[in-house]
Computed example of a mutant assay.
Amino acid sequence: MADRIDKLERSILALFQSACREDRLDVAEHLLRALEASSKESDDGGLPCARRPLADAYLTIARPRSKRDARRHPWISRGGDPS
């Protein structure tokens, strides 16, 4: 069963990364929540294991966005809220 869960999480991660590339952050948010819900394994600190798909999703979010994205969404480069 763990193999099926890992395959599902990898599939969700691929969709999450695709949604981020396509600037579909509304969809990406739901996929991230699905990864969070399905990620049960953790280290002693309660954090996702380093190579788990959830950790990879967080790394996708943490990576710097391109200058083109910053021009389209100026609040990203400022680290603020769009409102």
Results as ranks from 00 to 15, higher is better:
S66W: 07
A37R: 09
K7S: 08
K7Q: 14
D3K: 13
L54N: 08
A14C: 06
S77C: 04
D44M: 10
H30P: 00
S39A: 08
L31E: 09
L47A: 12
A28G: 04
G80E: 04
R24M: 05
A62F: 14
C49S: 03
D56G: 00
R72G: 03
L15H: 03
L31V: 04
R63P: 02
E36N: 11
M1N: 08
R71T: 14
G45M: 15
L32E: 08
R24V: 01
R72C: 07
R65M: 07
A34R: 14
E9N: 11
R72K: 11
R21T: 05
A57K: 10
G46A: 11
A50G: 11
R63T: 15
V27N: 02
E22N: 04
P74E: 12
L25I: 06
L15E: 08
L35Y: 05
A50P: 15
L13T: 08
H30G: 09
I61F: 05
R21A: 06
L13P: 02
V27Q: 02
Y58W: 15
A57Y: 00
K67I: 07
Y58H: 15
A62R: 15
T60M: 00
G46F: 14
A57E: 00
R24T: 05
R10K: 15
D3S: 14
R10M: 08
S66N: 07
E22L: 06
S66R: 02
L31P: 06
E29K: 01
S39C: 13
S66L: 09
A2C: 04
P64N: 07
R51K: 10
R21W: 05
L15Q: 12
K40M: 04
R24L: 09
D69M: 09
L8F: 07
L32Y: 13
G79M: 08
E41R: 15
A55P: 12
P48S: 10
P53W: 02
A62Y: 15
L8W: 14
M1L: 05
T60F: 00
D56M: 01
A2R: 13
R24Y: 01
L15Y: 01
D44H: 09
